[in-house]
Amino acid sequence: MLVVTPDLVIHSANPAAESMLGRSAKRLAGRDLTSVLDFSEPHVAEHLRRNSEQLLARGVPMRLGDRAVLVNLTVSPVPTHPGWRVVTLSDAGQGERFGNEERRVSLRGPAVLAHEIKNPLAAIRGAAQLVARQLDEGKRDLTNLITDEVDRIAQLIDRMQRLGREKPEPVAPLNLHAAIHRAVDTVQAASGMKLAVREEFDPSLPPVMANEGALVQVLINLLSNARDACAGQAQPQVVIRTRFVAGLVMNVFRLGRPVKLPIEVQVSDNGPGIDPAVEQHIFEPFVSSKPNGQGLGLALVQKLVRDMDGRISHERDTAGGWTHFRIHLPMARQGD
């Protein structure tokens, strides 16, 4: 984000602008905006010089040094300072090419909406950063709050976009227990504390057919939820079990043929359980029993599991005081 005077002279720039343009805020200050932003389409620069009204443009070609990029451009007037404007740039490339080749853009509705939300979010975050530079260290609580909340909303949008992806990730044979250990290590590193997980593994399990990244993400979500759920217990316990369920085989259909799901992973905790009011809807988007939950974690988990031809279920053992999440996955075929 750049703040410019009525004469299009750069007054200040936030850290993201420094990174994008490869120059410090001090070097950018005092420069003519159109000499810094090399727009491939002359009418964009001409519009900036002649018109101080708001401008919104997506997929604008621009050069950054010897690199051609596409940017989303937002120009907003500053109501308290006539003629002054805030210029926001964000990368709109998404792998598109332009020049002599025809530009191909295939954004679906949710993706377009996500872009339109992220643009003003970037402006808000950049404005907060610029305001923070004018404040003493002890007075930056509110600007820090603004940037933190903007980041939280942006992360929420990212998760919504992942939830809307239609093309599943490719699957391959992998060691289930190696994926579990990777997920446990990640949760421990992120929380900064030792996660006491009791492992009850079947060492004879064959490889599963799954996507490693997706499976690790699923396990991270379930382990994090289990850790949080039992955190208030006198003796918090998280148990992860694996087994081959030869007598209890779930089936899904792939290309018209049934696929058996004999490999089970169970993540359990001794917390109080899920609120009965939402228990039947926990895999739906925006449903959460956590006070500050976004309600996208388990919806994403279900999508990732289904993309691997697997199934996930939830059960509350009221008598024993345990909550169980069970994942059933296909076994890798011999020769895969």
Rank of each mutant, 00 (worst) to 15 (best):
V69G: 02
V71M: 04
E101H: 01
R85V: 10
S90G: 09
D141S: 09
R67P: 04
N100E: 11
F98Q: 02
P79T: 06
I124H: 01
L142T: 14
P82K: 03
N100H: 15
R125W: 02
T80P: 06
A128Y: 15
V105Y: 05
L64S: 01
H81T: 12
I117V: 08
Q129D: 09
I124P: 00
L107Y: 10
E102Q: 14
P120M: 00
P77V: 00
Q94G: 12
S76E: 10
P110T: 05
P77D: 04
L135W: 01
R140F: 01
K118E: 08
R103S: 08
L73Q: 00
L130A: 02
G93T: 13
Q129G: 05
G109K: 07
A123Q: 13
L64C: 02
H115I: 12
G126S: 01
R104H: 13
R103I: 10
G83Q: 13
P110L: 03
K139P: 03
R67W: 06
E96P: 07
G138M: 00
E101K: 06
N72D: 13
A127D: 01
R63Q: 04
V60P: 09
E101W: 00
V112W: 13
V60Y: 13
A111Y: 04
F98R: 07
V69C: 10
A114C: 07
P120H: 04
H115G: 15
V105A: 12
V87Y: 03
R103L: 10
L73S: 04
R103H: 13
A123G: 11
V131I: 12
S76F: 03
L107P: 01
V105K: 14
V71E: 02
A68C: 06
E96R: 15
R63C: 01
E116V: 11
N72Q: 08
V78R: 03
G95Y: 08
E102W: 15
S90H: 05
K118W: 04
I117N: 02
P61N: 00
L70R: 07
G93I: 09
P61V: 01
I124M: 04
A128F: 15
L70Q: 04
V87S: 02
E102V: 14
K139S: 14
G65I: 13
I117Q: 02
P82R: 03
G83E: 11
V131T: 12
I124D: 01
I117C: 07
E96Q: 14
E102S: 14
P79C: 05
V131D: 07
L121R: 06
R85Q: 13
D91H: 11
A92P: 09
A111P: 04
L142H: 15
A132I: 03
M62N: 10
P82W: 05
E96Y: 15
M62F: 10
D66R: 14
R85Y: 15
D91P: 00
A132H: 00
L142N: 15
I117H: 05
V105S: 12
N119S: 12
L113E: 12
S90W: 03
V75M: 05
T88R: 04
L142F: 15
L121Y: 04
R133S: 03
R140Q: 11
L64R: 02
T80E: 10
V87Q: 07
R125S: 07
L73V: 02
V87M: 03
R85M: 09
S106F: 08
E96C: 12
A92I: 09
R97D: 09
